[in-house]
Amino acid sequence: MAIIEVDSLTKRYPLPNKKSEAFLAVNAISLRIEEGEIYGILGPNGAGKTTTLEMLEGLTDIDSGIALIDGIDVQENPYAVKQRIGVQLQANEYFDGVSLVELLTLFAALYDRHVDPLALLDRVNLRDKANAKPTQLSGGQQQRFSIACALVNDPKVLFLDEPTTGLDPQAKHNLWALIRELNNGGMTIVLTTHNMEEAETLCNRIAIMDHGSLVAEDTPQALILKHAPEPPSAPIHGDIEDVFLALTGHGLRD
């Protein structure tokens, strides 16, 4: 059963230098994300990944198209959707001088819930930092804490925007383990990434976006079979990076 259904989702922004003209940040994207999937969205910078997520999260207005999460229309009933989703944003700074436990209690209060902050910190392996401030955490710890904040309402869908960007390999693998664990508990996870290994090994299915459009969507294996250029002599297949470059080209983006 699809937990997220997106049909012809479109977002226009005015051009920075010519206000009268608009460019399509997201161009009529249609997706179906199944319950219990780990779904990855790949794309070069400016491809429209974050804008797509922000439209699903209710942060950005939808210009046209329909987005349903758990059967609820995002535009018509944003507050009902917010109750069912957990969100980790790219920027994850919090109020100064407030401890992890206090922040988790606050986030729970925003959902009108009571949580056991220490149990939540246990899930992301941060119990020993309970009274620390977010600024005192390492990059990997900050990401795990952001995920803990996104879990206070026991969401059905968890959105992660570039969760492993800037992390060292240990922190990255640690975070993947956490994401798998959450997924094993039945949570649907939608993430954006620039990390090909992440897309290939973590995600059940991936969508590749470029210039606001969806250029491919399938399981990593199917995409490799279909798009990776087969080396003429060697029997080895390419990897997702080859697929990505074959589909979006080698040109540098900002």
């Binding site: 999260e57 209710g58 942060l59 507050y79 917010k82 109750q83 989703i85 969100v87 944003l89 790219q90 920027a91 994850n92 700074e93 919090y94 109020f95 986030f107 925003l110 959902y111 009108d112 904040c149 309402n153």
Partner: peptide, 16 residues
């Protein structure tokens, strides 16, 4: 300050 840090965005995706 809260906007610069992304805190307002983070609050916005909760039902507050």
């Amino acid at each position: 300050e809260y906007r610069r840090k992304g805190i307002l965005k983070r609050l916005f995706v909760t039902p507050i």
